[in-house]
Design a protein around this nucleic acid. Structure first.
Lengths: 256, 256
DNA sequence: CGAGGCGATTCTGTATCCAATATTCATCGA
DNA sequence: TCGATGAATATTGGATACAGAATCGCCTCG
């Protein structure tokens, strides 16, 4: 609720910013992110990538937001060269759109696209789980349980994302199926911001954690059909939440 | 046969080039490609991307080949900046690997990875065909037939690739399912060079065209199950050819 | 009120320079 | 002779400055 209202407000700001900036357009949040990521990077380019990426996924930069290279460079504290590198990568990820000689814009996700993403993810993730269960070991099972608890423990944004990613990496046996895993991750990224926003809804977090438990139980029992059913249900529930969020945003945008 | 032998020879050259360049390492072919692509681009960056991409897909640049920015820039006739842009995009495509401060290398595809790619493609392309057939129209069917003939007509590399891509775009109704289509295309790219090489085998080209006809007939008849079965068989046949090629290459590499 | 032009802004690309790091090669010691 | 060490070299990643091109906004003129 709280989070939803906040996003709607920020969305309006972004719309305004497209015309004439009425707020900072995420500049403050970006500067803060730049501070967090400031050290321990092998190259400035990947740092810029991470910062802008996190800014988009965290909702600091909203769909439609215009990204000017020089502004980003100043905020991050680098020259425009690594910013360009970052933007190119982000375009490949589908998070921004590079219009020819018109700059970069944070891409928006249509309801239809999101539906497609979840349809494909369902196909791929069910397959991933199926294959993973075919080669399950007690060690992996133990790790899965540990990581599931770690996900529940993490509360703040960044840690939660990382923990959840690792959980699924082990659950789907990413090591054995790197291409499948990478494809799934790319699809997740496209709706990343909304999944992150969705988590903030809060109430559904408990339900989410609950279905995780069910899933792991089924995996542990070796009940493939049941595990797949639980996973499918989980994905459909997340999908519905995201689609609802997107539809609400779309309406609010029209209403404004 | 002819093509196979050529590739094996080129492969050895690449292996040598990794140590001390014994041949031009694809420089001549790259220069030729640069000439073909020389005009009509909105930005030099995408031109560089296209040239290097085609060089990799056509086999002029082989897996393991080291790509130096300055050399590429000279061959293409641009500065290092657009080359860097291109390399970043190619890394996102999975065609090259950017090692930190060690330059770019054309990525090689393992047998396992290729198998995964085809497994996932089978999942996704069957789904794409299923959805496409659910909304088939006479107009699309007509276009599919036309494009199929266009594919058979095109013989040389570039035109053939484009024609085939458009054929599948219409067959899978890419316009209605952009995310699914994009995901499939990304996967195709990862084994692009080998599919291109495979086509040159020649004898199997007829068989390939034959299965296309079968597929279209089934689509026209609205026989979903049959169409899916034909498509699956086709994909498995291509997969087997590619895997065989990869295994042969791997053996030859060890043998050398 | 609409069409066209002008200037300002911004992106794209070039050229040059610098710092950091990898690689190569030669030397030294066991 | 062979392996390790360290300097010289090569290459990448990045900064900076500048030129060219395309777009946008605004302004004037018809």
């Amino acid at each position: 609720m709280n989070a939803r209202a906040g996003q709607a407000k920020a969305g309006d700001e972004a719309t305004d910013a497209a015309g004439a900036p009425s707020s900072d357009g995420g500049a403050e949040a970006l500067r803060r992110l730049a501070g967090q990521h400031s050290s321990g990077y092998r190259s400035v380019g990947v740092m810029a990538y991470d910062i802008i990426r996190d800014a988009i996924l965290s909702g600091a930069l909203l769909p439609g937001q215009k990204l000017r290279q020089e502004t980003l460079a100043e905020l991050i504290g680098v020259s425009r060269v690594p910013v360009r590198s970052a933007l190119i990568q982000l375009e490949a990820d589908g998070l921004v759109e590079l219009q020819d000689r018109r700059g970069a814009v944070v891409k928006s996700v249509s309801v239809e696209q999101a539906r497609e993403v979840y349809d494909i993810r369902t196909l791929l993730e069910l397959e991933a789980l199926r294959r993973s269960m075919a080669h399950m070991t007690p060690e992996r099972l133990t790790r899965i349980r540990e990581l599931s608890r770690a996900v529940d423990a993490e509360q703040e944004g960044g840690g939660f994302i990382d923990a959840r990613t690792e959980f699924y990496a082990v659950l789907y046996d990413a090591e054995r199926h790197p291409v499948l895993w990478e494809t799934i991750e790319q699809l997740k990224l496209k709706v990343g911001r909304y999944v992150l926003g969705w988590r903030l809804v809060g109430d559904e977090g408990a339900e989410h954690s609950h279905s995780h438990e069910h899933l792991i139980d089924a995996v542990e029992a070796g009940d493939v059909d049941h595990a797949l059913a639980v996973l499918r249900e989980h994905l459909e529930s997340v999908r519905d939440a995201v689609l609802a969020l997107l539809e609400t945003e779309a309406q609010e945008r029209v209403g404004a």
